[in-house]
């Protein structure tokens, strides 16, 4: 317990370091390009355009028949599911390397190692927010509507941040102790793409496979974002409660494990 509280104190004392590292994490991807920070918006926009063009016309026809929703733009439906999934994927791939890729700092100076998973989580979610903003704009442009439910998005993002932090701390620890897990994680994350309702719709799932959605925290995020941005409805609240409990537990466990093992990190890498 002492390790955890001293970790939190250290984090608070170095909050400006966290802010700076987050900024740096965000600018890292764009610093060598001519358009710079514009890419934060351009990347999601281009992706939406491609998905809308390709899927709306080709796959979308069949999909509209299946769901019975004739007005549905499958490209947007798909992108809205991809937003939380991509953030999840980024979180894992970045957090698992978060200690090793900062070896220069970890081994040579004293700083609260907790900042690395934290700043990476925040950077990933910030990038995701740019994607969401573009999605909302495109929905407004193509379908001439903005659902009032988007005012609830900050709540959902906050919930997702708790979940992301838990993942980050846990996988930062795992990636430092057992670097070989990286390959396993990459494969699992790909598999998760297919068992999460991103390219398929959960309504048509056979009853004996319902657990794939019910016990899948990622499925909650995907469906909740769709409800808020595309559907204009409030997500299932009992499911939201279950997700919150799970996310909080994950965050606590992840942080405690990290705080208790971090003193060995400098030697392990």
């Amino acid at each position: 317990m002492e390790a955890v509280s001293s970790s939190l104190v250290a984090l608070y004392r170095r909050r400006w370091l966290a802010v700076y590292l987050t900024q740096r994490e965000l600018s890292k991807n764009h610093r060598k390009s001519y358009l710079g920070f514009l890419w934060a918006f351009l990347t999601p926009l281009l992706m939406i355009v491609f998905l809308t063009l390709i899927f709306s016309e080709m796959v979308g026809l069949r999909f509209r028949e299946l769901t019975g929703d004739t007005a549905l733009n499958f490209g947007l439906y798909l992108y809205c599911g991809l937003v939380p999934y991509l953030a999840f994927q980024e979180t894992l791939s970045k957090s698992i390397n978060s200690i090793r890729s900062n070896a220069g700092l970890v081994q040579k100076v004293i700083l609260p190692l907790e900042v690395f998973p934290l700043t990476r989580s925040i950077a990933v979610l910030t990038d995701m927010v740019f994607g969401l903003v573009m999605l909302i704009l495109v929905v407004a442009f193509l379908e001439h509507r903005i659902n009032w439910t988007i005012v609830l998005l900050p709540l959902l993002i906050a919930l997702q941040l708790v979940f992301t932090l838990g993942l980050s701390y846990l996988f930062a620890f795992i990636g430092t102790y057992l670097p070989d897990v990286r390959g396993l994680v990459r494969v699992s994350v790909r598999a998760l793409f297919f068992i999460t309702p991103i390219i398929w719709t959960p309504e048509r799932l056979p009853e004996n496979l319902r657990f794939l959605v019910d016990y899948n925290p990622l499925a909650f995020l995907v469906i909740a974002y769709r409800d808020l941005v595309l559907g204009g409805v409030i997500p299932d609240l009992s499911w939201a409660l279950r997700f919150s409990i799970f996310a909080t537990a994950l965050c606590v466990v992840g942080f405690v494990v990290f705080a208790r093992t971090k003193q060995n990190f400098a030697e392990l890498i």
Partner: peptide
């Protein structure tokens, strides 16, 4: 305490914050 990808100036600030 230097991050190779960043400029000397950025690293100076980083070191101060650390």
């Amino acid at each position: 305490g230097f991050d190779d990808k960043f400029t000397g100036r950025e690293n100076v600030i980083l070191n101060g914050l650390i």
